[in-house]
Each structure stands twice: as C-alpha cells, then as structure tokens.
C-alpha cells in the first residue's frame, strides 16, 4: 500500500493506493479514521484500489465549499479527473455509499460498477438511532454485531480520548459528518428521484444485524435501483466488510467478475 497527496482544485487530499487491475475507488464511511483495512488488501488482489480521505476527514484538508454530500459528489468528479480515471468501480460504505450513489446519478458514464455497502442516503421507514446523540463507545456498540468485535470496538472508543491524535481525528471526522448529514439526517430527500439516472450494474450489500441503518433500507435501494443484486451478509452489523471480510469481499468479487462475462 502506498500513500500520496493529491491537490484537487486547491484542496489537498490524502490517498492510499494498492493493487493493480481495474480501478476501484473506495469511499469511506463516517466512522472511518483513515486506516488501510484487511478488506482493502483483499480487494487490492484484483483491483487497483484508490482510497481517499474525504475532504474534512482524517488527513485531508477542509474544503469550505462543501456543505452537502451532493457538493462532495462534484468534488469527487474533479478528483477522478485529477487522477485521470475516466471510468471506475465505486464502492462506498455507509456515508460513502450515499456519496457513490450520488456520483453515479450526476455522471453515470464514469461509473462502471456501483457497490453500496450499508449505504446512507435514503430515509428509513422506521425510526433509526441518532448517531449524533451517541458517544463514541455507544456508537461502537451499536454498529458491531459479534460480541467480541463489539467489546473490542467499545474498548478502543473508550481509550481514544487518551490518544490526542486519534481523538482529534475522531472529533474532526464527526464534525465533518455532521456538516454533511445533520439534517436531513443521513439522507437526501431528492436522491430517490435521481437514482433512475444510474446506468452501472449495482450491488447492494447489508449486514443482516445492522442496528444503525436497518437492513430494510437494502430493500428500498433495490426498489429504486431495479436489477440491482442484493447481498445480505449474515452475522454482520453496520460494517460487513470489517466483521465478515471474507464473505463480503467474495460477494464483491463475484459481482465484479459477473459483469465481465
């Protein structure tokens, strides 16, 4: 894995890259603190993986012009231009899934495949927890399913305040998320009417035990994106790529190879 900086119309963005093959841009979620993960390594066995920190998150600069996920989607089109990537697979998790779907509605031809993992962006029919009233530890408890993973994540969240760098990153990322998704909460009411523009094959992936964004949202996405493939991952909460890396990456890979036939 290598790390580089890219200047996108005046905003410095940190990008992690690895692997070779068709380009796959990974759009991270709100709770991501900028790490390279085992899932990314697994994806890099088949793809040239590009993983930016969104502007305002982790080691990327702030971009004061960005006030919404829609603004961020336009920023990413500039980022793809800067990287010289005409057409990519977009894989977005949570907040990143919402972003990926939005990009695919603006310039559908730039997206060869669209993979939405526990994607924010739509409003659930049932009440959902408010991530912005929860502490780091409460949130860690909520998004993980397996007891071991849950306990480890809670412990890490509780210790984060003792690590100034990590704590500062957490607080900045959380503020950046609030700026994008405070109200309307984690969704764009206009997105459903734009999704018909998506032309790429779509994979919708959800953890069956997601308690932050319930799996019923996967059905909503399926209805709005007819023909999308739906993968519900067992024994996984909000982060199936983390909790069930093998199964989740295998499902992504099967979807990508399917499209190539």
């Amino acid at each position: 894995m290598s790390e580089r900086e890219l200047l996108v119309r005046g905003t410095r963005v940190r990008i992690l890259t690895a692997g070779s093959g068709d380009p796959l841009v990974y759009l991270h979620g709100a709770g991501d603190l900028g790490e390279w993960t085992p899932a990314l390594s697994a994806l890099a066995e088949h793809h040239a993986v590009v993983r930016p920190d969104h502007p305002g998150f982790s080691s990327s600069d702030d971009c004061p012009d960005i006030d919404s996920v829609h603004d961020l989607a336009f920023f990413y089109l500039d980022l793809l231009d800067e990287l010289g990537l005409d057409r990519v697979t977009l894989l977005g998790s949570s907040l990143g899934g919402w972003l990926a779907a939005d990009i695919a509605t603006i310039e559908p031809s730039r997206v060869s495949k669209l993979i939405l993992v526990s994607a924010a962006g739509l409003r659930a029919a049932e009440p959902v927890p408010d991530m912005f009233v929860l502490s780091a530890a409460e949130l860690a408890e909520l998004i993980h399913h397996a007891p071991d993973a849950r306990a480890a994540a809670v412990a890490e969240a509780q210790q984060r305040a003792d690590d100034p760098a990590a704590f500062g990153r957490y607080l900045r990322n959380r503020a950046a998320t609030a700026h994008l998704a405070w109200n309307p909460y984690l969704h764009d009411p206009k997105l459903p009417r734009r999704l018909h523009r998506v032309t790429a094959p779509v994979l919708i992936m959800w953890g069956r035990q997601d308690r932050l964004l319930p799996a019923s949202l996967a059905r909503q996405w399926s209805e709005l994106l007819p023909g999308a493939r739906l993968e519900i991952i067992d024994d996984a909460g909000h982060l199936p790529l983390t909790e069930q890396t093998g199964a989740a990456v295998a499902a992504v890979q099967a979807f990508c190879e399917d499209g190539e036939r």
Partner: peptide, 22 residues
C-alpha cells in the same frame, strides 16, 4: 445531559473540543 448532546459535533472549535470532550 449527555456530553454529546451538550456539545454536538462541530459546536466547539477543533482546538477546544478535545479538552472538553475528553
């Protein structure tokens, strides 16, 4: 009130947030 209600994300500056929230 819980601290995350008292001080929602971005309400404090990034300079003072770690001290207050931690």
């Amino acid at each position: 009130m819980p601290r995350d209600i008292f001080f929602p994300p971005g309400y404090l500056t990034l300079r003072s947030a770690p001290r207050v929230m931690g």
